[in-house]
Design a protein around this nucleic acid. Structure first.
Length: 120
DNA sequence: ACGATGACGCACA
DNA sequence: GTGTGCGCCATCG
């Protein structure tokens, strides 16, 4: 059978997987946009993840656990989104500086190593 | 088709 | 540590 050409990922097509990946971030843990994209098999699509979040409708999704590379809040310091995310992150035990830098208790990117690294 | 726009990421000065 | 530039890629006018 003729192989289907690789279609460009769309919000519609990727939203479900991205939602699931974000819901899977444990409480007290943060992950970057790039982490989420890679997790759903779409490396280099961090911006797609951002787009999904910007149009997020389901309030049950812990969007606040998703930060920019370098553990920085994506919103501009001083914006509403910034304030809300900072509140939520602090509520989960993280420290957030005024400039948006997050001193994370735990990062999803390091979770695997935490689970295995100490034993081998 | 083309250029502008993002809740992005990385290299470099 | 901060600012700037460029790559990336789906969307939109």
């Amino acid at each position: 059978m003729p192989r289907k050409k690789a279609a460009a990922p769309t919000i519609e097509g990727a939203a479900k997987a991205i939602h699931a990946a974000i819901r899977a971030i444990p409480k007290g843990t943060i992950a970057s946009y790039g982490d989420i994209a890679a997790r759903v098999g779409l490396p280099k699509h961090a911006r797609l993840v951002a787009r999904v979040l910007s149009q997020l409708s389901d309030p049950a999704i812990p969007w606040h656990r998703v930060v920019r590379a370098g553990d920085r809040i994506a919103f501009a310091a001083g914006s509403e989104g910034f304030a809300r995310q900072r509140e939520r992150l602090r509520a989960e035990g993280h420290t957030v500086r005024d400039n948006g830098q997050v001193i994370a208790v735990r990062r999803a990117a390091d979770l695997d190593q935490e689970l295995w690294g100490g034993f081998f």
